[in-house]
């Protein structure tokens, strides 16, 4: 019973993290494409900023995945 609850907790952690980061990355990508369509000459600069912001948005689900993997495999 306890082990199955841990699996459920891990699944919820990964799922909620994925929803949040999916929304964030979708918004980032959309705004990036809008910006490039408006001012194509700014694309290289926007790409760098996009990559840094993506790394930040990515951090949350990766932390969630890390904690859930810890729960599933190490606890």
């Amino acid at each position: 019973m306890e082990q199955s609850l841990i699996y459920i907790a891990g699944g919820i952690l990964m799922g909620l993290g994925a929803i949040g980061s999916g929304l964030g990355i979708g918004m980032l990508g959309g705004k990036y494409l809008e910006g490039v369509a408006r001012q194509p000459e700014l694309q290289p600069m926007l790409m760098t900023q996009l990559f840094i912001a993506l790394a930040l948005v990515d951090a949350v689900p990766i932390i969630a995945v890390g904690i859930s993997l810890y729960l599933i495999f190490a606890v």
Binding site: G29, L33, Q43, P44, M47, T48, L50
Partner: peptide, 16 residues
């Protein structure tokens, strides 16, 4: 990264 061509779109970002 600063000198990427303007026609690459989002595919390299998704791959990375």
């Amino acid at each position: 990264l600063e000198n990427l061509p303007t026609d690459v779109g989002l595919s390299p970002v998704i791959r990375s």
